[in-house]
Design a binder for these strands. Structure first.
Length: 259
DNA sequence: TAGGCCATCTGGTCCT
DNA sequence: AGGACCAGATGGCCTA
């Protein structure tokens, strides 16, 4: 069962599991049934081999002293908590997916967890890079213009027209202009014909996520690669066609997610 | 059918 | 003591 089961998830796992978190119990779980069966089978030996102390019903007992019902009840509580914890984690993951520059929709398979994390990392690095470039650009525009005007006029003034003219000369400004000046519909670039659109269930290639994996079919067809990305007005596009990834992000293969 | 991805269970460890 | 966190195991679903 996914955190968004029944709504956006393209797949439903554990269909035989009905969770009732409020009651802290679940029913019809095959694994649980199996567990119960096994638990019954080796009830006696479990009590002998495991003498860990635990509590049930507010009274401290060794596990061997717990009744089968108490052990099951305890196990159910722990399982329920763990399930809730994982659901919360998945909710957070969904929240992250929502803000990622990636196509959303019922017909689009959602990013896997690992892809979401890698894409998020890439995206953050790219935004940081863009911010730095933007700062440089602003510095160039105002600093440069001020220097020029200070030589020609006692009271330098920067007109919008002059700024625009200066901006138009800057290579980065051109790409920025194309981004800011675009509408969401036009930003949905590469929204090519259905024939060139990717399969609705195609996840992003590992290459886009920063892996140095062998180039597969997706990379052979740029349209195929980029058409599934949502482009936001005023935001740099992370897709490989619009903007190459920062050099620091091109080595994601070395990314380690150590604790 | 193999492999990827996922949910769930479970026991261990750490923290409050 | 109880809960959170973690990682390993397991089994189901889906796709190439």
């Amino acid at each position: 069962m996914d955190s968004d089961a029944g709504s956006t998830c393209s797949r439903s796992s554990s269909p035989d599991l009905v969770v009732d978190d409020t009651a802290g119990s679940f029913f019809s779980n095959k694994m649980f049934q199996k567990y119960c069966q096994e638990n019954r089978d080796r009830e006696s030996e479990v009590g002998q081999s495991r003498m860990e102390r635990c509590t049930a019903g507010g009274k401290t007992k060794t596990r061997s002293e717990l009744s089968r019902e108490e052990v099951q009840d305890m196990r159910l509580k722990v399982n329920s908590r763990e399930r809730k914890r994982m659901h919360d984690l998945n909710q957070a993951m969904d929240g992250l997916r929502e803000v990622m520059p990636y196509a959303h929709g019922p017909s689009v398979r959602k990013l896997s967890k690992i892809s979401t994390l890698l894409l998020a990392r890439n995206y953050i690095l790219m935004l940081s890079n863009s911010l730095e470039e933007m700062k440089k650009l602003v510095g160039d525009v105002y600093g440069g213009s001020a220097a020029i005007q200070s030589r020609t006029a006692p009271h330098p003034t920067i007109t919008p027209a002059a700024t625009a003219a200066h901006l138009s000369l800057h290579p980065l400004a051109q790409s920025l202009h194309s981004l800011v000046g675009s509408t969401p519909s036009t930003l949905q670039h590469h929204s090519s014909s259905p024939s060139s659109a990717p399969a609705p269930h195609s996840p992003p290639s590992a290459s886009f996520l920063g892996f140095h994996a062998p180039v597969q079919g997706l990379l052979k067809d740029p349209l195929h690669l980029t058409s599934s990305y949502r482009h936001f007005p005023g935001m740099p596009c992370p897709c490989s066609l619009c903007q190459p990834l920062p050099t620091t992000t091109s080595t994601l293969h070395s990314l380690s997610m150590n604790k």
